[in-house]
Amino acid sequence: MRTGRDLKRISRELRAMDDKEIKKRFRKELRTAAAPMVPAVRAAIRQIPSKRGYSADGLRARMAAATKLEVRTVGKDAGVRLRVDGRKMPDKQKALQSYMEGLKRWRHPVFGSDVWVQQKPHPYFFRTVDPMGARTRVKVIKVIDQVAKDIS
């Protein structure tokens, strides 16, 4: 039980069984396995350097608030996903997390002039998640294996 296909197969079998308690436990245990990543990413966002100090209503606070964990056990997107959700950001800031990570080139006009500058990215997501990924993957695999045993 090591791939996303296995998760999809288990979710299919859970739907066929129609056992609400096992489904509920499965989602809860998957969420528990990946949950430590959320505060780590939020902390990394808050530590992004800025000329201004951290503010509870600033850009970094909005990005931290938009960080969420999604657990899906149905459909073709079955899996565990950690994301900084651009849909939770204000208008004209929906791609900020991609710019900050360096996935997109970040250019903007200097306030009060027609001069454009390129902003340096400050990667925060992958450098935080990558070291935690192996441990989380092992936990998720254990959850999948346990539920597979319970189904059998």
Rank of each mutant, 00 (worst) to 15 (best):
A65K: 10
A65H: 08
A65D: 10
A65S: 10
A65F: 05
A66E: 06
A66I: 10
T67Q: 06
T67S: 10
T67N: 06
K68I: 03
K68N: 08
K68P: 07
K68G: 11
L69Q: 02
L69V: 04
E70M: 06
E70G: 08
V71D: 00
V71W: 00
V71T: 03
V71R: 01
R72M: 03
R72V: 00
R72W: 00
R72T: 04
T73G: 01
T73Q: 02
T73P: 00
T73V: 04
T73M: 01
V74K: 11
V74L: 06
G75N: 05
G75Q: 05
G75H: 01
G75L: 04
K76M: 09
K76Y: 10
K76D: 15
K76C: 05
D77N: 14
D77K: 15
D77T: 11
D77C: 05
D77G: 09
A78G: 02
A78D: 02
G79I: 04
G79D: 02
V80Q: 03
V80A: 03
V80W: 02
V80N: 02
R81P: 02
R81M: 08
R81A: 08
L82R: 00
L82K: 03
L82H: 03
L82V: 13
L82E: 05
R83A: 09
R83H: 08
R83L: 13
V84W: 06
V84C: 06
V84E: 06
V84S: 04
V84I: 06
V84T: 05
V84Q: 03
D85W: 07
D85N: 11
D85F: 08
D85P: 05
G86D: 07
G86S: 07
G86K: 10
G86A: 10
G86N: 08
R87Q: 12
M89Q: 09
M89I: 07
P90S: 09
P90V: 02
D91V: 15
D91A: 11
K92P: 04
K92Q: 14
K92T: 13
Q93H: 14
Q93M: 13
Q93V: 11
Q93K: 15
K94G: 15
K94P: 05
K94L: 09
K94W: 08
A95Y: 10
A95R: 11
A95E: 11
L96K: 06
L96S: 15
L96F: 14
L96A: 12
L96Q: 12
Q97V: 07
Q97N: 13
S98G: 14
S98V: 07
Y99C: 06
Y99A: 06
Y99N: 05
Y99V: 03
M100W: 01
M100T: 08
M100H: 01
M100D: 02
E101W: 00
E101P: 04
G102W: 09
G102S: 02
G102Q: 04
L103P: 00
L103Q: 13
K104D: 14
K104W: 13
K104E: 14
R105C: 12
R105N: 13
W106G: 08
W106T: 07
R107F: 12
R107C: 14
R107Y: 11
H108S: 14
H108I: 15
H108G: 15
